[in-house]
């Protein structure tokens, strides 16, 4: 095989410059985000609220209180608009397991992991999820726009019963 050397002509240098241009043009996503209106540096959009630690008993008290005020005969809770929803996550269950919400209203869903790390995913069509670190309540603000059922699943592996950690939100008119 004959010896050959790099053909480093002017043309190839221009191509190289073009390759750099192409590679760095992934940064174009920044103006694209801006054009789509998803480049907000403010807290708020999909924000999970400030991370403050809370004792498990305190959170449990809110869940119990919620059951007292809004509990139904079948053990589910029906939450009126304008009220926060409290959901406790422990190995291997969410409490309450069934929640009724109204379509078109905005709710703050507050989740809390008491023992180990869990996650929560709200599944309807696609899914929206957050990690739940033990001891830190996480608020997800949602507005369900269609009636039906939102399935809740734990999304952070939490032990043998991980896949059994399910709950659901029914969205009614």
């Amino acid at each position: 095989m004959s010896e050959m050397t790099a053909p480093a002509g002017k043309g190839s240098m221009r191509l190289l410059a073009a390759a750099f241009g192409v590679a760095f043009s992934v940064l174009l996503l920044v103006p694209i985000w801006s054009a789509m209106g998803v480049l907000d540096t403010e807290a708020g959009h999909g924000d999970h609220g400030a991370a403050t630690v809370m004792a498990a008993e305190d959170f449990q008290a809110r869940v119990d209180q919620q059951l007292e005020r809004f509990g139904q005969a079948d053990g589910s809770v029906a939450i009126p608009p304008g009220t926060d929803v409290f959901v406790m996550a422990r190995q291997y269950a969410f409490v309450p397991r069934t929640i009724h919400l109204k379509r078109g209203e905005t709710y703050d869903l507050v989740f809390y992991a008491a023992d180990v790390m869990h996650g929560v995913s709200l599944i309807m069509g696609g899914s929206l999820s957050s990690v739940l670190l033990p001891g830190t309540p996480v608020t997800i603000r949602v507005r369900p726009t269609a009636s039906g059922t939102i399935a809740l699943r734990c999304t952070e592996y939490c032990g043998a019963g991980h896949h059994a950690m399910t709950a659901s939100i029914t969205v009614g008119d």
Binding site: V22, S25, L28, I32, M36, V38, G46, R141, T145
Partner: peptide
Amino acid sequence: FVVGVVVLTVLAFQRLWGMPVQLP
């Protein structure tokens, strides 16, 4: 690749906005 990234990004946002549960 870069064109693909842009296209997938736009599609992904459309999907996010089309979901029946919205993060307002």
